[in-house]
Amino acid sequence: MSFPDLSKIPAIDKLGVEERVSRFCKRSIKNAAKKHGLHLALSMIDLTTLEGKDTEEKVKRLCYKAGHLHGSLEGLPNVAAVCVYPNFVRVAKKELEGSGINVASVSTAFPSGQSTLEVKLSDTKFAVEEGADEVDMVISRGKFLSGEYNFVYDEIATVKEVCGKAHLKVILETGELDTLDNVRKASDIAMYAGADFIKTSTGKISPASTMPVTFVMLNAIKDYYKATGIKIGMKPAGGISTAKIALQYLVMLKETLGNDWMNKDLFRFGASSLANDVLMQLEKQESGIYQSVDYFSKD
């Protein structure tokens, strides 16, 4: 791992990116492909609750939902993970024991990242010790925007060390990075510093994930793979609330990184309400009619 050569990072043309993205959105996904895609999307969800008002009870309910998506549909996959604040990792871990569902914890003074390295490291260490399988850290956007790229790189690399076996997802908070050129630069810094996943957003800033931003990050992952042979995962988060949008993301993933990335080890959706919309679409595929939202549990 070494600091990336920033002079080699290609420029990004926003209009070109948007034009390409509009092509993905025009793909027609029908029948078997739709069902398969919706199953894939479910299996990639990080079911998330990150609120000040979260309680142990709330986390327990979410964990139960993660393993019991919808009783009337057979053969459904589980979601990939449940994503919580560090203080709920222990309870989530216990609830999900034996389910194969991971526990992800945000850390490093999520969501703003405005704290000292010391605090960020102990935050991360705590989450890992409590049993988090995955850590979602935030980068220091202020430092990034003031050009202190080495600071951002070092911080990620240090957090990565503390993570140990836990997978590290690095949240760029692209809604604060302003330009796609910055998104690309931050992606490269995060990957070269040791990220296992790069992630768009905390969900606390608008805009959260967008397709153009995710597309730029997918291209960064592709270039990194070509350069190093290492496959980095991608997690768009926030704003992906419908099955239709999820399928458009999957089209973009398939046509940019290929089938190798089409699994939960390398792609995740950070979302709280996506699962139910996907389930509604799957029910419709099965029965031919849309069911009332009241048939889908809200936890």
Binding site: I29, K30, N31, H36, H39, L40, S43, G75, L76, E286
Partner: peptide
């Protein structure tokens, strides 16, 4: 209906 999400690569069904 079986869980196909982990087993095969995803391809688009024909959409004429």
């Amino acid at each position: 209906m079986s869980d196909t999400s982990q087993t095969s690569s995803w391809s688009y069904a024909s959409a004429p």
